[in-house]
């Protein structure tokens, strides 16, 4: 039995495990916001310094990406990489729904089947690892 305080607690604490799943889940929302903001920002991208520093969607997108990374790291501290990391695929679900709603992209059957399948996959994954 190891007594080192630095050993990561994996699966020992159900509350920590649940918190890390919720964190990754929240991470996917921030990540989706980042993708959309960067997409909007790139639509009026100009390769001039002043245009870039005043491109608020682009800057906001990269700020979201930074927040996203910090949240992911905090989640990984208390959970299994192999369980948490694929949950990031949920970003596709948000991006698809948000681009229907905000960018007025046309819904189609493939995308809808795809996001439904991802939701089921993430649900199964989130239940896995529980012992």
């Amino acid at each position: 039995m190891s007594t080192t305080a630095t050993a990561p607690v994996i699966e020992a604490d159900p509350a920590a495990r649940r918190r890390s799943i919720l964190l990754v889940f929240a991470c996917t929302l921030v990540g989706a916001a980042a993708q959309l903001l960067i997409k909007v920002g790139m639509n009026h991208f100009e390769p001039r310094v002043w245009a870039i520093v005043t491109n608020l969607p682009l800057i906001g997108g990269y700020v979201c990406l930074g927040i996203n990374t910090v949240m992911l790291v905090l989640a990984l501290r208390d959970g299994e990489l192999s369980m948490l990391y694929p949950i990031i695929a949920f970003t596709y679900v948000w991006v698809t729904l948000l681009s229907y709603g905000l960018l007025h992209e046309k819904p189609n059957v493939y995308k809808n089947v795809g996001i439904a399948t991802i939701v089921v996959g993430v649900a199964i994954l989130g239940r896995g690892g529980r012992k």
Binding site: G114, I118, V120, G121, A123
Partner: peptide, 17 residues
């Protein structure tokens, strides 16, 4: 099993998207 099944569905879903 849950990790492998969950991951397989995610891959399939991303393929459809």
């Amino acid at each position: 099993q849950q990790k492998i099944a969950g991951l397989a569905l995610i891959l399939l879903g991303v393929f459809f998207v």
